[in-house]
Design a protein around this nucleic acid. Structure first.
Lengths: 338, 338
DNA sequence: AAATTTTGCAAAATCGTTTTAGAAGTGTAA
DNA sequence: TTACACTTCTAAAACGATTTTGCAAAATTT
């Protein structure tokens, strides 16, 4: 079945295709198309089942009304929720979102940027993987609208919105101290991204503030590329080798989940044998007895702010670029695990 | 910064744009372009940072190399995994995937189809919401490549791939019977979609096979639009009002999760007070003590098959449409909850 | 040497829109 | 009667690629 184009409609209605375009875009008045013709065109278009070809529109107008969202891993609930919220938010502005995952792999990230460029997205929302500085810098230089989320690149002049990672960890640590925990291990990931570093900084800062000597043995950096099993083993070893530990702080939700598995295998009980707190909330944390205390990021606020910043860059055609750095505050959700 | 087009390259290299196109598409040999010119063009394109405008290509060639995937809810792990696998699979064929959720709302589904049509996707992968028959039938009539996933519409002549729902539930029931459970409640959702009906059929069939009288009081159909809290309450009431129940069968993973919450609140213990089994696997089911027995769909196989069927329709330009119905087998994962 | 074929590239059409410039036709005033 | 202003629409260019066709020059054959 052949698709019906604006030309076909024009022919059927006995007018020029420009006339059809005017009518269909609600510019009939502005272009002084008579009501008779307007009605006829509208009717013909409706009965013929006409719908515009978005590709042609984008090509002609130079605007695809599409945003590119690059996250670390769309399978993770944090990014999935972020993506969904961003999508809903972008819809308000009349934009669609196409999303894709880097898996924290810079070369995949590079490909994705290039793919999105080819598809002429109007703007980019990116949670940058390590070593993506250059590619992102290039986007910025080409004056493409870009907003970084969840992390930023000190070397790149781009707007970004993230959470006050160090302060949030601090808050979590204060809670642990208040509950009487002193021997707190920190499980993080071996990734060179700013928000992970900030979380570690928060941990270190909190210890020193409390006058506790830093013990590097109870800081575990799990290689990002490790398999599930290996990671679970690493955490289990940490616990076995450091029986003095009374609490464990996980730097991300998937680490927390792995940790639960480790604790489970060691037949330790939460919070009696070990207290647990994790960055990023998760269904499991709410449900898993006795409930895992976590630090919840304001995903919705992050999404809204990021989209707003991006829209600002997209719609203001003038080159009035001003970098904006937004920091939102995370929220401590206290549950039975501490 | 102005984007560089094929014309710019042509001008810079002192050739016609057609020549550039030939070179860049590897047709230099076929079109008998001299090596000198080829080298020059390639060099110019490289240094100018040229990349093709996918919109223009799609418009001209009539192929967008993009598939539309419509799922129920991309936030659900089952659909998220499905989407991701489909994406990876489609990539093998050189296709991109854009995905979106219906939230089981037919009018949203209609909009999504129309949006995807406007964007000229080459094919559609759809988990149809109730009442989407008409819109999908239209796609089929327009000869658009379509494959339904996870469910199908009896009234629509479209290829589909799903799991043997009834048989899988049957298998789960057999497992429960073998473990000695007899009073088995069934928690499902109030949705008119075929796979949900099939699951209920499986439950009813298993009971009659075992010679157990059907008790409608222990079949709970939760309205899809219910809030979390209401649903949890409903399940809790079911348990409270039917103390004879020794097992609960949940028809989907999110129902299972709600059920865990209910059981948790009633301070009942699994499997001593109540055994639990759920359709669709989930991280939580693996982790939640004592581990929740579940019926795992072969997501990867479903994705592969669906994409293969769709590709078949996309690439075979001739109208050799033959409807294919594929049924794959789900797998029972026995854990501590039964 | 003339005729033919091959080589190597350019020109132009095309995809489906939007948008600018302007062409008829009608009415009005000088 | 002419000039001018509206009204109502049309023609054509443009967006950035692909692809078919065309055509001069060089090479080969007769």
């Amino acid at each position: 079945m052949k698709k019906v184009s604006i030309k076909d409609i024009a022919q059927m209605a006995g007018v020029a295709s420009s006339t059809v375009s005017f009518v269909l875009n609600g510019k009939a008045r502005k272009m002084r198309i008579s009501e008779t013709v307007e009605k006829r065109v509208l009717e013909v278009a409706r009965t013929a089942g006409y719908y515009p070809n978005q590709l042609a529109i984008s090509l002609r107008t130079g605007k695809s009304k599409t945003l590119g969202l690059i996250v670390e891993n769309i399978g993770n609930i944090f990014f999935a929720t972020l993506a969904k919220t961003i999508e809903e938010e972008a819809e308000q502005y009349g934009y669609r979102v196409v999303y894709c995952s880097t898996e924290n792999n810079a070369s995949k990230g590079k490909e994705l940027i290039s793919m999105l460029s080819q598809r002429q997205v109007d703007g980019y929302l990116i949670t940058p993987a390590p070593h993506m500085e250059e590619d992102i810098q290039q986007l910025v230089q080409l004056q493409r609208p870009v907003v970084l989320i969840d992390r930023y690149l000190p070397a790149v002049e781009a707007s970004h919105v993230l959470v006050n990672n160090a302060e949030a960890v601090n808050q979590g640590m204060s809670h642990l101290f208040a509950q009487g925990y002193r021997e707190i291990g920190f499980v993080t990931v071996d990734l060179d991204v700013i928000q992970i570093e900030q979380r570690l900084d928060g941990y270190i800062g909190a210890l020193s503030r409390e006058g506790i000597r830093l013990n590097k043995d109870i800081i575990l950096k799990i290689p990002y590329t490790h398999q599930r099993e290996d990671a679970i083993e690493l955490i289990a070893s940490l616990l076995k080798n450091n029986p003095q530990l009374d609490a464990l702080f996980f730097a991300t939700n998937y680490l927390g989940i792995l940790g639960l598995e480790s604790i489970n295998r060691l037949k330790m009980s939460i919070p009696d044998d070990i207290a647990v707190i994790s960055f990023d909330d998760h269904d499991i944390f709410r449900l898993y007895p006795p409930g895992i205390t976590s630090i919840q990021q304001p995903v919705e606020a992050i999404a809204k702010k990021a989209v707003a910043l991006l829209m600002d860059q997209c719609e203001n055609t003038e080159i009035k670029f001003d970098k904006r750095e937004v920091e939102l505050t995370a929220k401590l959700i206290v549950r039975g695990s501490t």
